[in-house]
Amino acid sequence: MAVADAELLVEVAGPVATVVIHNPARRNAMTPAMWRRLPGVLDQLEADPAVRALVLTGADGTFCAGADLGDLDELLDAGDASIAVTAEERLAAFAKPTIAAIRGACVGGGCQLAVACDLRLAADDARFGVPPARLGLVYPAPTTRRLARLVGPSTAKALLFTAELIDSGRALRVGLVDEVLPATALSARVGEVTAAVTVRSRLSVMAAKEIVDERADDDRIAWWHGQVRTSGEAREGVAAANERRPARFPWSPPEARPGEAVGAG
């Protein structure tokens, strides 16, 4: 099937949705149209009850080499309200587990998207960089804070101050990625992780994501505990463990409005 040169490609296989950043002429740089489309894609996948995990990756051996800056005046005027930040925040708020599968360049806007995912698995040829200091730009505040929470203030400053590229080994040491694998083994490992995640309790996984990301207040946490009490989820999990069989977890998230976390109640 023919595709546009710059596009987000979406594939759903069983419980796993894969979004592919496809702009090979620009090493998968995100165009303004791609930034604008991403939140809608995520809304659709979040609302799909068959989807239990999301993989974000890039085409042709490159994750994403940055953002097509487009109209510079528009970018400068937007500040933290830019279309890139809107897309990043929507990805970070995606209610289901998200995994960035990273090969090659993961720079600028690519790094922004990867850091907004829950987990980052990288090939040993991956390279990472945060280049605003080379361009005279201020990295968006939500993006900067998310990076600092992930790697710590000192490493975040080093990446931001120097704008240097780092290799996958250093990215692993500083906590920017969770695993580094040979390029030929990355797809299989992503498959293993998504297979493990998608057979676990959706209630447990989605609640854990909200709590770790500090998106759940006391009322929301009480709602999650109420779901455990009424869903039969824990009874099934304990019974399956005692009977040494796979669990058949019954809970499904309530429907949500687009842009609202699935399961919000």
Rank of each mutant, 00 (worst) to 15 (best):
V115F: 15
C106T: 11
D124M: 04
L75I: 10
K96G: 14
V115C: 04
L72M: 12
P131R: 09
A87L: 12
V130H: 11
L75V: 11
G109S: 10
A123C: 02
V107D: 03
A78S: 10
G104C: 02
D80H: 13
A114L: 04
L91C: 10
C106Q: 03
A84R: 01
L119E: 04
A81S: 15
P97M: 09
A92T: 08
D73C: 09
D77C: 14
A100V: 07
L76P: 07
A114K: 04
A87C: 07
T98H: 14
A105N: 05
R90I: 02
D118C: 12
G109F: 11
L119Q: 08
E74G: 08
R120Q: 02
A92R: 14
A116I: 12
L113D: 00
P97K: 13
A78M: 12
G129Q: 03
A126Q: 01
L76G: 12
A84N: 06
E74M: 11
A122F: 00
P131S: 07
L69A: 05
P131E: 05
P132V: 01
E89A: 11
G110T: 13
D73L: 13
V115E: 08
A84L: 08
A105L: 10
L119Y: 07
V85T: 14
D124V: 09
L113T: 14
D77E: 12
R103C: 05
K96F: 10
A126V: 01
D80T: 10
A122C: 06
Q112C: 09
L76M: 11
G108Q: 00
E74T: 11
E88T: 12
A101F: 05
G129P: 01
C111M: 11
D71M: 13
A114P: 09
G110D: 04
E74H: 09
C111T: 14
L91M: 10
R120H: 03
V85P: 02
I102A: 03
L72D: 06
C106K: 01
R120V: 13
F128E: 00
L113N: 03
V115P: 06
D73W: 14
V130P: 00
R127L: 09
G110S: 05
V107H: 05
D80C: 14
P132S: 09
P97N: 15
L91Y: 13
T86L: 10
Q112E: 08
A114S: 11
A95Q: 06
L119K: 06
V115M: 11
E89I: 08
F94L: 13
A92N: 03
P97W: 07
Q112K: 13
G108C: 01
R90K: 12
R103P: 01
V130M: 09
K96T: 05
C117W: 12
V130W: 10
R90D: 03
D77Q: 15
D118E: 10
F94D: 15
Q112F: 15
L91V: 08
P131Q: 03
A114H: 09
K96V: 02
L72H: 14
L113P: 03
F128Q: 00
D118V: 03
C111F: 13
E88L: 13
S82Q: 03
I99R: 05
G108V: 02
D71F: 09
P131L: 08
A123G: 07
A92F: 14
D118K: 15
L91S: 12
S82G: 12
